[in-house]
Simulated scan of single mutants.
Amino acid sequence: MGASQSKPDGDKVFYNETPIQFSQEVIDHLQESAGSPGTSPERQSTLDAHIRARINAELGRLREEEKLVQEQIEAALEKENLSREREGPDRDEAEGGATNSLSIQGALEEVQRKVDRFYAKRDISGYLSVNESSQKLIECYRSHQATPLDCWREVGAFKSVVAMEEKKYISSLQQ
């Protein structure tokens, strides 16, 4: 139906009625560019060397500038730290600001002592009353496997011993 209308009848050729003319300069330029498709290898290597030199010079300038800025920042920080140390740690702590390195070092050593004390007291073998109560509870459970609820006295005793030791342990950490 519409298939015959969408097919081309054949090639159509259009002829230009007015002649096209180019100037001699355009023709010469096109001939020159057609003769030499790119730059010569010598010229390309010269251009590459020149570009590399400019990049290296700019990179050196930026590094010097970065070094200068870094020195200025370090000098400002050093000046600020010196002024804080002269004013004293009491001022910094009262304002909630940073403290000097000596007070920070002291605080770190105190925290380290507390951590060491925590790990030293973590060992349960030093709590004989807990171990004895635990053994009694285990023996009761083994002897009353069919009726484990009969061990309620041992469970209560174990809980009270553990609670007492926990209180002692927490109070020792707060010292």
Rank of each mutant, 00 (worst) to 15 (best):
A76C: 09
Q70Y: 07
A75R: 15
E74N: 02
E66W: 08
E87S: 14
V111W: 08
S101A: 04
V115T: 09
N81D: 03
N100T: 15
E64G: 14
E74M: 00
A76S: 12
E87V: 06
E95S: 13
V115L: 14
E74H: 01
L77V: 09
I104N: 12
K79D: 01
I73Y: 01
Q105A: 15
A120H: 09
I73R: 00
L102A: 06
R91H: 08
E110T: 08
E64D: 04
D90T: 03
D123S: 13
G88P: 00
R63T: 00
Q70D: 09
K121R: 14
R91N: 03
K79I: 00
Q112H: 11
K121H: 09
V111R: 13
E110S: 11
G88S: 00
R86W: 00
Y119V: 11
I73C: 02
I104H: 11
Q112S: 14
V115F: 09
K121I: 10
K114L: 14
L102S: 10
V69C: 01
S103D: 13
E110H: 07
E80Y: 03
L77W: 06
S83V: 11
F118V: 10
I104R: 14
K121M: 15
E87A: 15
Q70L: 11
K67F: 02
G97V: 02
S83R: 15
R84E: 01
I124V: 15
V111A: 15
D90R: 12
A94G: 06
G96V: 02
F118N: 10
G96M: 00
A94S: 10
E85K: 14
I73Q: 05
Q112Y: 08
I73A: 00
E109K: 13
I124Q: 13
A75G: 07
D123E: 10
N100G: 15
R117E: 11
E85V: 14
G106Y: 10
S101V: 11
G97M: 02
Q105S: 12
R91M: 05
Q112N: 12
D123P: 08
K114R: 15
K79L: 00
E80A: 12
V111S: 11
E66D: 02
E85R: 11
E109V: 06
I124L: 15
E109H: 10
R113C: 04
A76M: 03
D90E: 09
A107L: 05
A76N: 07
E78S: 15
G96K: 02
R84N: 00
E110L: 13
F118T: 13
Q70W: 08
S101F: 05
A94N: 05
S101E: 13
A98L: 04
L102F: 07
K121T: 10
V69S: 01
R91A: 03
P89L: 04
Q72C: 02
Q72V: 01
E64H: 08
A107K: 12
